[in-house]
């Protein structure tokens, strides 16, 4: 690290360093913007791989899904969804917490229940004909 800094100090002028700082700073900002996930709009619940429910995240409620072991309770609040109760032993799904961003996923593997949040960015269409 120290060697690299010494090399950079010798190999570049102050103007070079200013340009490098500006470019790298811009890159970091771009990266943050590119990887920030948009808020989710709905969650798709799958049991044994099959989509069983699509839940809009715009109103608070609790939904019970029947999985391989028994009922799993999901809670929706403030545009987010989480596992609230599950019949599995380790309760790892409950520890996953709230999912609110498009693309976020949580699963209760023993109960074969998977929840994935989808949103505008995740949709493969720009408008719906109806």
């Amino acid at each position: 690290m120290k060697g690299t800094l010494t090399f950079l100090a010798r190999a570049t002028t102050p103007a070079d360093r200013l340009v490098l700082i500006a470019v790298w700073g811009g890159m970091i900002l771009l990266g943050i913007q590119a990887f920030a996930r948009p808020p989710g709009e709905e969650a798709v619940v799958r049991v044994r791989g099959e989509a069983v429910k699509r839940l809009a995240l715009d109103r608070p409620r609790k939904v019970t899904i029947r999985g391989a072991l028994g009922p799993t309770e999901l809670q929706i609040r403030d545009g987010a969804i989480r596992f609230r109760h599950a019949p599995c032993q380790r309760k790892r799904c409950l520890g996953r917490g709230w999912l609110a961003q498009a693309g976020e996923t949580a699963a209760c593997v023993p109960n074969r229940v998977l929840v994935r949040v989808g949103g505008e960015q995740g949709k493969p269409w720009h408008a719906v004909s109806y």
């Binding site: 570049t12 002028t13 103007a15 811009g26 590119a34």
Partner: peptide
């Protein structure tokens, strides 16, 4: 005021250009 002894060197441009190209690709 910052005074520079020399304009950005060719080395700096070599370091910067691939980054700019990458950024444009990502955009």
């Amino acid at each position: 005021m910052i005074r520079f002894s020399a304009p950005p060197s060719e080395k700096a441009y070599r370091l910067v250009l691939p980054i700019v190209a990458l950024a444009l690709g990502a955009c």
